[in-house]
Design a protein around this nucleic acid. Structure first.
Length: 980
RNA sequence: GCCGAGGUGGUGGAAUGGUAGACACCCGGGCCUUAAGAGCCCGUGGAGGGUUUCCUCCGUGUGGGUUCGAGUCCCACUCUCGGCACCA
């Protein structure tokens, strides 16, 4: 890399004395973005400017800390999942927006920690690896290299000394540890759940691999069921034992803070809806001639209009009928059996279907109304909702109405709406549902009560009688953790049949199950070649005895490891806790592989794979850990060996740096990732693993939440639609970085539209940004020549205003308008002679620094050198020659000469602002007829100013012969004459 | 169906209830140049008028409303995009 500035300096020094500017034209040429970016990214690596002073047992941060007390600021962007060969421009957009804020906060005086990592362990990465026919382990190595190489080029202030990759055994060891804690605390359990199964591919599918039948065109072909993404055959649901986390236990806690959290509003609403709290009542209905009781949940107990009960085909009561524990006639049993089978086939949660159902022939007693109702089975009732049993009130629920109409069940009106219509409810339009206004009728003691009051009175009555009780239900379901897949952390559990038979186990309610002792973690994922998703929902690892055969931790008998792996969302639910505590002896960017800016070419790639394959010949369970580390590169091995083994995070560091102050990410993670992270955080706190008691929270919700602020960024679209490979409109940032530079791309991306809303990517607009940066370069470099035009008061005032504007926009992440204002400023400078003073240039460079970090740094260095020259020549004037190593020389090494990125953010002068000229609009009846340029000072004399407006020629002609009814004055903005 | 975001020039987008279209892209014209490119300057919502400086009318998805004044607030529609969906 060529260091152009050194030659520059010697030239300048030699020529400066000749009072000529032979370098001016050279300086003003188009800046060389490639050289500048290469130069500064190298210097930033060497000076470690982006490494946060984390503290703890890591590197000594004292150099940065001596100046003032630590002001930690954890600025985090959601880490990417490498599901493709490399980054696309949408990733870069998000990272840039997050980084600009981090850089701004650093200039505001914070110690900013901005880490980066990869969420490469899970279904996205696995699917991509499967698609291109590469082993996920090999794929991880390649994507890590590619992604990190690309990420290192976008000019972000990532702290490369602390990265997290979720597939690294040293990371997922703690993901497994987290699972173990969940189990120990009774929050992990096993239950049957439906998984998607394709009978043709003989494989389990993730939800996102099932084409929903609600897509109309598909519906016609398939007749209402979900289709396999690959072979288009109908997907079935299979009930299999799965691991769950009891997140529902935290439903209230997750709901609690939501209102007061500083999060993007729509994300909070999405979470609230997802948790979906509903207050209602569970009512018990005894089934005649049996000892059974069916419990119905409802938010609207319209019991006097209740004419039947419907239960889900998966309801326990149905099972009892099928098992013969509840007796029905032979014909009925046959009917029910075939109906339940039919439902199992057509089950794939999709929108409304034609209502079907079967009568059990049994009756249940509606004790409130004092009559019996038939018990039906229908799959419009979903087991997962409420109690899986519904009390049918057809006149006041549209679904119940459809069902009753289809099967000829009685429909009884008990609410009259505002229209007073008392007629039979015989069309769906007449159905008055909960939430509408109405009055109770035909309801004995409830008559004449308003609808809502009637419901409350019913609940009171039922509770008093002991026939039911008020409950809250939640839309939130427990978190299904297990995946019958290969690429994920093996669930660290062991099942011992012997203990199970003896009713022994770590948890009372889960005989036979033991968590893997913590000292034995991680349970390393072995390299196997048959890693494809298995037949009949069996995980790939289940075919490997050498993996699952293990001694029972309790009795020592032959036991079996769990062979499912955990959900990717578990990996990402705690990674932000890990970052500050990562210890790395070796700095990532010093690694030649990562520094290498060349992407892996197909040729190299083959070489890589063959090398990797050689390392992984056969599976040997005792050497798994070692081997896996080899596969994952030497760097990881070093990390593994140098880390204290006993905790996933350092408590001291964690106290200092968490919670995450600013979290940026896509709104698509509004629900799952953000909710899971909150859940895990709260659970860890409850268990005492996050102990912040020693330090009081810094206002707001403090330690209650993992992310103090969450900002949802927008999406980059291309040609009006979301980027996707199938549409062929994916933009790779590399080529743009190569031809325009990272700075220009960063600014262009942010200039497209508000960061919160995204924008439409188009090539042509890049040109404009690139041209503008060049104009900035010229203006700044021109400030150092002696031929510049005199100082302009207009420019000075405009710059002062600009500082205010850009600062405000940065706070709100309105980068697009910040950039526009800076463009306005440079346009003004062009009108005013094209130059600014060096002091003005410094301010401008600072404002630009977060947006265009390389270019700003280069300009800053030039300004610093210019200042040094000036100081020196002044001293020469005064004292003759400067002695080497004198005090004067040390002055030259002022803070100014260090990086622009650690300078303080410029401040504006409010008093200058007040002197600014303003343009006042003069309106007649709200219509602007003239504008008058004046200063705020003049406007203070209001009456004089009003008459001035009145007498303006453009205004006068409208006022002549008219009467002024009213004059409205908005100081500094407008004067409005209301006339007739 | 429900929830959320949105609808402003040829395009991306600006506008604490106060001059609609900032800033850019595209396009057109000019300067420079042997030429091209780059760069610089000017114009650019629509319609109409004034031989310049200017003036008038219309205009923020549709229809109402509040207000001295509405892209912005309220009501009712409508369309687009995201998410959820037989949620009892």
């Amino acid at each position: 890399m060529k260091d152009s500035t050194d030659t520059d300096r010697s030239k300048t020094q030699a020529s400066a004395r000749l009072l000529r500017q032979p370098t001016d034209s050279a300086r003003q040429a188009r800046f060389d973005h490639k050289a500048i970016e290469a130069k500064w990214s190298k210097i930033w690596q060497e000076t470690k400017i982006n490494e946060a002073p984390i503290g703890g047992s890591g590197r000594d941060p004292s150099a940065k800390l001596k100046i003032r007390p630590l002001r930690p600021y954890y600025n985090l962007m959601m880490f990417p999942y490498p599901s493709a060969e490399g980054l696309h421009v949408g990733n870069m957009y998000a990272f840039t927006g997050s980084d600009i804020f981090g850089r701004y906060m650093r200039m505001k005086g914070y110690d900013v920690f901005e880490p980066i990592g990869l969420d490469g362990f899970g279904i996205h990465s696995e699917n991509f690896a499967l698609k291109i026919g590469r082993h996920p382990m090999d794929h991880a190595v390649i994507t890590e290299k590619n992604f990190y190489a690309q990420l290192s080029k976008i000019g972000a202030m990532f702290d490369w000394s602390r990265t997290v990759e979720t597939y690294n055994p040293e990371y997922y060891r703690w993901t497994q540890w987290l699972f173990v804690q969940m189990f120990k605390q009774g929050l992990a359990y096993r239950a049957k759940a439906n998984v998607n199964y394709c009978p043709s591919c003989k494989t389990v599918l993730a939800d996102e691999q099932v084409i929903p039948a609600r897509d109309a065109s598909v519906l016609r072909v398939a007749g209402g069921d979900g289709l396999c993404e690959r072979c288009k055959s109908t997907v079935e649901k299979k009930a299999l034992e799965q691991w769950f986390f009891r997140i529902t236990k935290y439903a209230e806690k997750l709901l609690n803070n939501l209102e007061s959290m500083d999060w993007t509003e729509k994300v909070k609403i999405a979470q609230k809806n997802w948790i979906g709290k509903k207050e209602g009542i569970e009512i018990y209905y005894p089934v005649k001639d049996t000892k059974e009781e069916i419990i119905c949940f409802t938010t609207a107990p319209v019991n006097f209009g209740m004419t039947f009960i419907v239960i889900s085909p998966e309801h326990e009561f149905v099972q009892k009928i099928l098992r013969g524990e509840v007796v029905v006639s032979k014909e009925k049993l046959k009917e029910i059996t075939s109906y339940v089978e039919m439902c199992a086939k057509r089950k794939k949660d999709v929108g409304e279907k034609e209502k079907t159902g079967v009568d059990t022939g049994l009756l249940a007693t509606n004790r409130v109304a004092g009559w019996d109702v038939p018990v039906w089975i229908s799959d419009f009732v979903v087991m997962e909702v409420g109690t899986g049993a519904v009390q049918g009130c057809p006149a006041h629920d549209t679904r119940d109405f459809e069902f009753a109409q289809k099967f000829g069940l009685p429909i009884k009106r008990v609410v009259v709406g505002e229209d007073g219509d008392m007629s039979d409810v015989d069309t769906i339009a007449k159905v008055i549902v909960h939430g509408m206004n109405g009055t109770m009728v035909n309801s004995e003691f409830l008559n004449d009560l308003p609808f809502e009051k009637g419901l409350q009175a019913t609940m009171d009555f039922v509770e008093k009688k002991g026939w039911g009780k008020r409950v809250s239900t939640y839309h939130l379901r427990d978190w299904l953790i297990s995946r019958q897949r290969y690429w994920g952390p093996p669930i660290p559990m062991i099942y011992c049949e012997k203990c199970a038979d003896g009713k022994k186990g770590e948890q009372l309610d889960m005989p036979g199950w033991y968590s893997v002792p913590e000292k034995d973690l991680p349970v390393v994922l072995p390299r196997i070649e048959d890693y494809k998703p298995g037949d009949d929902g069996i995980a790939p690892l289940a075919k490997h005895k050498e993996f699952f055969n293990v001694a029972c931790p309790s009795c020592g008998a032959n036991a079996r490891r769990e062979t499912d792996v955990s959900d990717t969302f578990l990996d990402s639910s705690w990674y932000f806790l890990r970052y500050p505590s990562v210890i790395q002896e070796k700095i990532l960017l010093a690694d030649e592989n990562i520094l290498d800016t060349q992407r892996v070419s197909p040729g190299n790639l083959d070489n890589n794979i063959s090398t990797l394959d050689n390392k992984s010949s056969n599976i040997n369970s005792t050497k798994l850990g070692e081997r896996s580390s080899n596969i994952l590169s030497a760097r990881d091995t070093e990390r593994v060996s140098s880390r204290p083994p006993n905790a996933p995070w350092d408590p001291e560091i964690t106290k200092k740096w968490l919670p995450v102050q600013m979290y940026t990410g896509g709104a698509e993670h509004s629900v799952l990732h953000l909710l899971y992270s909150r859940f895990v955080w709260k659970a860890l706190r409850d268990w005492g693993y996050l102990d912040f008691s020693a330090r009081s929270a810094q206002g707001g919700l403090g330690w209650d939440e993992p992310f103090s602020t969450f900002f949802a960024h927008g999406l980059v679209i291309k040609d009006g639609s979301k980027m996707s490979k199938s549409k062929g409109n994916v933009v790779n940032p590399d080529e743009y970085i190569a031809s325009y530079g990272a700075d220009a791309l960063r600014i262009y991306l942010m200039f497209m539209g508000p960061f919160s809303q995204g924008g439409d990517f188009r090539d042509s607009a890049m040109e404009g940004v690139s041209r503008w940066l060049n104009r900035v370069w010229k203006i700044v470099m021109g400030s150092m020549t002696k031929s510049r035009s005199p100082m302009s008061e207009k420019v000075q005032k405009a710059l002062n205003k600009l500082v205010k504007k850009v600062g405000e926009d940065m706070e709100h992440r309105r980068y697009n308008t910040a950039i526009a204002s800076m463009m306005e400023f440079t346009n003004l400078v062009a009108l005013e002679g094209g130059t600014v003073t060096e002091d003005e240039a410094k301010v401008l460079v600072k404002l630009l620094a977060p947006l265009a970090p390389h270019l700003a740094e280069e300009m800053w260095e030039n300004l610093a050198k210019s200042e040094k020259r000036k100081v020196k020549s002044e001293q020469e004037k005064e004292q003759g020659v400067v002695r080497k190593n004198s005090f004067a020389l040390s002055v030259l090494r002022s803070p100014f000469s260090s990086s622009v990125h650690v300078q303080s953010w410029p401040e504006f002068d409010a008093s200058i602002l007040a002197e600014d000229e303003v343009t006042v609009a003069v309106q007649i009846n709200g219509k602007t007829r003239a504008t008058i340029a004046t200063s705020l000072v003049k406007i203070k004399e209001e009456s004089a100013f009003v008459s001035l407006c009145q007498n303006d020629a453009r205004v006068k002609k409208y006022l002549d012969g008219k009467k002024i009814l009213k004059t409205i004055v908005v100081p500094g903005k407008l004067v409005n004459f209301v006339i007739v």
